[in-house]
Write a protein that binds this DNA or RNA. Structure first.
Lengths: 209, 209
DNA sequence: CTAAAGATAGTAATTAGTCACTATCTTTTC
DNA sequence: GAAAAGATAGTGACTAATTACTATCTTTAG
């Protein structure tokens, strides 16, 4: 069960190892500073050998984004599974997302890094697709919640979904900044509590008009 | 008032122009992809000439971060000025921040880009200082709001401040992703409304325990 | 006339990607 | 069932382009 130094791996296995190496590196390195040489070194391979398994660097990035998208979505969907209340489902998704990121700090960095770029790479379009799918999932939940009376009808769906994702992104950014991934796990419940009250609460509290 | 092509600018003026050129470029380019050559080209100067005014690239980035920190903080403080209610002040700050970013999309990109990096540059420590100052300002407002009864005492200050900043960062990220800075301005009021209810609302709404 | 600002033309280091060759595994054939 | 043949994986040295940065010459402004 130990991580033994493997040689002559079959192609697909080697590609998987490569993706993990990149996620690993991205935990401590700015994605755009990750060189093919660094990737190769981290997996104890020569730089040239990488190109036996990927046509170019962009293909590596694409594979990484696919990995992130698949793992993250499946994790989130699994967390929401079986929960009857949409609000409870959203909370479970929120915490699952945070947990995933704190286990793989490199994942959000790759995502943000890719989205930040100007040119329309294929990796970028994968990242966009992920966010879109996420937003749709949330919209469904919010709609169901409204129909069940768990959320007020006056609630702005768009804003609620934006804030849900934005809140996570904000937490992630602040953890990246402090360099402490546990901070995120600590802050998550309290932050979500505020979000939940924000969308559930109908009254406009105090207003002086 | 027109942007006339200036030559032989005095040193300080040239440095200002340089900073603006970088912010400009950062609006469409990943900060770590911005080369000294690109900066020079954008301000119609030769690359070598840049180093007459900055000892190295890091010094340029430092100047940029200083620019961002000063302009952003002064803008936010001005927005909150004269507002008696802390909650109103927070809303004004929120909207001012969003407005600033939508006018200078390059600013947050430089900030995030710098914070993302592993190594401890001076530009990075400026960025950290900015966020810290911001958080303290928020904390003061929240405390005052509590003492005036505008916010409930049970509210978690830390979480509220985190979410305030996080919400903005999230909005920024999503605008960067869609490439449409106006999206941010459109979403901001609705999103802040939810945040405001979230911190102001004491009741736990519906809970099934 | 001189000092500051810019142009020109470099440098050394680093980057993604290539290539001829070697090592190892898998399949075929008798 | 073992040797031959082919396929697959990895090596190490290379390249062309790009990078931040520098040295030297030229222009301009006061």
């Amino acid at each position: 069960m130990e991580k033994i130094r493997q040689k002559n791996l079959p192609a697909e296995e080697r590609r998987n190892v490569t993706v993990e190496a990149v996620i690993d590196l991205a935990a401590t390195t700015n994605p755009s500073d990750i060189t093919t040489a660094a990737i190769a070194k981290h997996m104890k391979l020569t730089q040239g050998a990488l190109f036996r398994h990927f046509p170019n660097k962009e293909a590596i990035w694409q594979a990484v984004m696919k990995w992130v998208a698949e793992r993250l979505m499946s994790r989130i969907e699994k967390a929401a599974e079986g929960l009857d209340s949409p609000l409870e489902a959203m909370q479970a998704m929120f915490l699952a997302h945070i947990a995933f990121v704190s286990e793989h700090p490199g994942a959000p960095r790759m995502l943000f890094g890719e989205l930040q770029g100007a040119k329309a790479t294929q990796a970028k379009s994968l990242a966009r697709a992920l966010l879109k799918q996420y937003a749709e999932l949330l919209n469904e939940l919010i709609k169901t919640a409204k129909s069940r009376g768990e959320l007020p009808h006056e609630l702005d769906n768009q804003a609620a979904a934006t804030l849900f994702i934005g809140t996570i992104q904000g937490l992630v950014m602040q953890s990246l900044i402090s360099g402490d991934m546990d901070q995120m796990r600590r802050d998550a419940p309290g932050v979500f509590a505020i979000y939940r009250r924000g969308i559930a609460c109908t009254g406009t509290a105090k207003r002086d008009e």
